[in-house]
């Protein structure tokens, strides 16, 4: 019985890396759920279309991350993080929230930012980069603000609680 358990455990540990998408580092297992995206999606797909669908969202995410990685105010936060995984889970989260019909497989905002010591000013810098990336993608200003309004309450889970 004990040996069977150990064998099952070993098998599961071995199986985990196989589940990891190409180019990403394995993470500790967690329950997948769209609720992890920490937001209620827009009702139809018109926000998804306002963001130019999958290609537009991918460009916005890349634009935001690339600007953040070269911003001395916040670049250190991304050191040692799995940026490939970050780009993928953010694409999924944005797609899910914008009504693009994707499944979100990432962790909750609280779990994903645990012990990172993120401050309000860091989040504001990230928002600036997201705004710049949305401008570059020529997303309508009203659509930009509707998305930002959906993301803003995540601050409570992202910024270290005192």
């Amino acid at each position: 019985m004990f040996c069977a358990s150990v064998a099952a455990l070993l098998l599961s540990l071995q199986a985990a890396p196989d589940m990891t998408p190409a180019g990403e580092q394995p993470v500790a297992p967690y329950a997948h759920a769209n609720a992890n995206a920490d937001g209620v999606p827009f009702r139809d797909d018109h926000m998804w279309r306002a963001f130019h669908g999958a290609i537009g969202v991918a460009r916005v995410i890349d634009g935001m991350i690339d600007r953040s990685l070269t911003d001395p105010r916040i670049s250190d936060i991304f050191k040692g993080q799995d940026i490939t995984r970050l780009r993928r889970t953010l694409r999924e989260q944005f797609c899910y929230l914008l009504g693009g019909g994707c499944t979100y497989t990432g962790r909750t905002m609280q779990e994903a930012h645990r012990n990172m010591g993120i401050q309000s000013a860091d989040l504001a810098a990230l928002v600036e980069h997201l705004q710049a990336a949305m401008q570059t993608e020529h997303i309508a200003f009203t659509a930009q603000n509707r998305l930002l309004a959906k993301l803003a309450p995540m601050k409570r889970d992202v910024v270290k609680q005192k």
Binding site: Q119, S120, A121, D122, A124, A125, V127, E128
Partner: peptide, 8 residues
């Protein structure tokens, strides 16, 4: 303390 951090 840290300077700045409000949105424009």
């Amino acid at each position: 303390t840290r300077a700045g951090g409000k949105l424009v």
